[in-house]
Amino acid sequence: MTLFKTMLSKLGRKTIDSLWTLGVASTFIFRVIARSSIVIRRPNLLVAEMHFAGVLSLVIIIVSGLFVGLVLGLQGYETLKRYGSTGAVGTLVALSLVRELGPVVSALLFASRAGSAITAEIGIMKTTEQLSAMEMMAVDPYARVIAPMFWGGVLSMPLLAAIFSAMGIIGGYLITVVVIGVDSGAFWSQMQASVDFHHDILNGVIKSVVFGTAVSAISVYEGYASVPTAEGVSKAVTRTVVTSALAVLALDFVLTAFMFTGAH
C-alpha cells in the first residue's frame, strides 16, 4: 500500500514538475516576444543573428537538399518505371519536397546546426555570468541577446526551407532528366499541373514558419534554463536537439492532418 502511495505521489510530482516547466518556458517566451521591439530599433542585431542562424546553415541546407532531391528522383523513377509513368516523377519530387521534406528536414538540420549553437551560446553566457553582468550594467539580456536570436531563427527558417525545396527539385531534375533521360517537358508540365500555389507551396511555408518558431523558442529557452556548468550546458544542447526533433515531427503530423486531408 505504501509502495502504491509513493508511486502515485511520484507520478503527481512528475506531472506538477512538467507543468511547471511548461509554464516557465511559456512565460519566458512571452517575455522574449515582449522585448522584440529591439529588433526594429536595432536591426543590425537581427542581421547578425540571421547571419549566424541562416547564412552559416546555407551550405548544409543546399547540399542536403540537393542529395534528398537526387535520391527522391532516383527512387521515384525506379518505382514509376514499373507503371510506365516516369513523367510523373517531377510531381512526386516536387510534392513530397514542398509539402513535407522541405520544411521537416530543413527544420531538423536547422535544429542541429543553428539551434544547438544558440543554446550553447546562451548557456555559456549564463555560465560565465555574462547575462548577470549585463543586468548589472542595466542592459536587458532578453532584449540585447535573446530576442534577436529568437527572431533571427524565426525569419531564417522559412527561407532555408524554400532553398531546401528548390535545391531538391533541381536535384530531382538533374538525376531524372539530365542523367536518366526522362522527358524534360513532361517533368515540368506534370509538376506544374499538380503543384498548387495556395494548397501546396503556401502550406509548406506556413509549416516552416511554425517549425522555425518552435525550434528557436526551444533553443533559446534551453540555453537560458541550462544549469550553469559545463555538464549542464552540454545536457541543454542535447535536450535542444532531441526536443526540437520531436516537436517538429509531432507538429508536422498535426499540421498535415489539418492541411492535406479532406477534399482534394
Binding site: 528548390a166 535545391m167 527539385i169 498548387d196 500555389f197 507551396i201
Partner: peptide, 14 residues
Amino acid sequence: GIAALLFLALKAGN
C-alpha cells in the same frame, strides 16, 4: 530565399 520561393511558385507550381 526569395529566389527559391519564386522558383517554387513560378517553375514548380502552377
